[in-house]
Every structure is written in C-alpha cells, then in structure tokens.
Design a protein around this nucleic acid. Structure first.
Lengths: 133, 133
DNA sequence: GCATTTTTGTTATGTTATAACATAACTATT
DNA sequence: AATAGTTATGTTATAACATAACAAAAATGC
C-alpha cells in the first residue's frame, strides 16, 4: 500500500512549488486528495516536517503556512517579507542582520539556535498598484 | 449574565502575569475554569485579542502561546528571546535593529507594518546550570 | 425609561497538528 | 529468493488551537 520511498515528500514539494503564496497544510492536503482522496493529514505533516528539516521548506510561523525555501543552505539567515495584500513572500538572505539579532539576544547571555524573522506589510507591486500612494 | 466591562481582560491579564512562561490559550482557559467551569474558548480568545491590540499581551507565533508585554508602547520594536529549555522569554527593545530589518525588506520596495522577531535558544541560566559548558 | 452600543455568554464548528499503531517498500545479508 | 531489519507510508483517532454566529446582560446616552 505504501508508495516508493521519499515520494510523498517529492509530491508535496512539487505541489508547493506550483504556488507563489504560502499554503496551509490542509490546503496542500485538499489538493493532494484530488489524486489520492484518502490521504491523511499525518502524511502531509510528515512530508512537511522532513522537508523543513532538510531546508527545502519553511513554515511561516506568523501565518501557519508553508513555503518553498529558495535558499535552503541559508535557512536560518533569512528575513521573510510577507505581503498581507497579495500573500507573496520574499526571502531575504541577510546573515549580518541575523548576527545583529543574535548579538542583541546575547546581551543577556542568551545563546541563539534558531531565528524567526518575519515582516508583514505591503510588497512593491501592491503599493504601486492602481496609484502611487 | 455578562460581567462588568473589561473584567474578562483584567482576569486573563492577571492570570498571565502569574506566569514566567508563555501560556497557551487553552492553558489559560483551564486555569480560568477553576473559578468558572463553563467558560468558553471564545472568551479567552476575545480577551487575548483585545489585550494584544492594546499592546498588553503578545502572541509568540513560533510557539502558539501568549506572554505579558513588558514594553507595550514598544510592542513592534521587540526581539523576543525564547529559552527552549526553561521556557522563559526575554523582551529586548531594539528599535534600531527593527529599523535594520525593515531596511532589508525595503530593498525590494516592501513597506513593513509589523515585525515578528523571535529567537530560540538557551538562556543564560540554563547554559550555566550545573556546569559551565 | 428606552433605545443603542458594547461586553460577555453560549453553542457550534472550523482549522491546525500529532499520537499510536499497522503495513508496505526498501536494504542488506545470506 | 528467503530472511530480517529499517524506514516510509497508511490508517484511525484525537488533541490542540481558533473563530463564527447568535443570544443575553450590562453600560451608555438620550
């Protein structure tokens, strides 16, 4: 009954790649169910978890949704800019900025292991859509 | 049946203030139910939402939990450092750092409105607990 | 008092995520 | 190609998080 190894991850990643906007786990599930109606949430979450661990996918904590990671090797050095109007996400690689954030936390002796840096706002396209503000 | 205005918010805030660690909405609900067994999730979420809006409380996006905001007037200028070992949270007010993050996002014309900056790791106490590493 | 607005209560449901266990597929050895 | 061990996936159920929609009570303004 089980399919070939790693296939689930590939399918989920391929599906995520078809979208410009972050997708919720259940949105992915619904889409996967078009081909595989009995698919369970667990399968999606397992795939997302594995993809996340290897830096292929990122969970946007502030929107409970997942995006493909364009810079997997820099996964902990990114500032994510999320447009609240169109939903698109920009991945800014900025190691020095992450260092600065770490340094701030380190002021109290804190030793960082993971950074969540998400900025909400309006992207360039949306700001200049229709008229300049 | 409804109680005096704002009372719910006060109760939730008071309860949150009794904790050093962030609390999930349902953890708060369980505690409130000791006095008020029929309390519904809605009531907690409404209070948390109002408290968040006025900067008294913050949701830690990366852990689905809420903490009292020690610097309500600087609510969007904070770096939150979360100890994964003991759960304590430090609120670092760092406006210039937030400016830097904004500037990074602005490189592509993005106009930030809200910043989520959460750092996970180990706090000073936990690092030096037992022995120096 | 009476109408209006706001807060809280109530009921129901929607959404996100994981636990626990079963089975199929892959791997390596013989 | 039998086997045993490991890993991936399937299956079932439920836990945890969050909101919608409507009702009732209190506060507010006239």
């Amino acid at each position: 009954m089980a399919r070939r190894k790693g296939r689930m991850e590939d399918d989920v990643l391929a599906l995520l790649n078809q979208h410009d906007q972050p997708q919720s786990a259940y949105a992915l599930l619904d889409q996967m169910r078009l081909n595989n109606p009995k698919l369970a949430p667990t399968s999606i979450y397992r795939a997302l978890s594995a993809l996340t661990e290897r830096g292929a996918v990122r969970r946007l904590e502030s929107m409970k949704a997942f995006v493909v990671c364009r810079h997997g090797d820099e996964v902990d050095n990114c500032v994510m800019a999320i447009c609240d109007e169109c939903g698109t996400v920009e991945e800014h690689v900025a190691p020095s900025l992450i260092d600065d954030v770490s340094a701030e936390a380190a002021k109290s002796g804190f030793a960082p292991t993971r950074h969540v840096i998400e900025v909400h706002g309006r992207c360039s396209d949306c700001r200049f859509e229709g008229e300049v503000e």
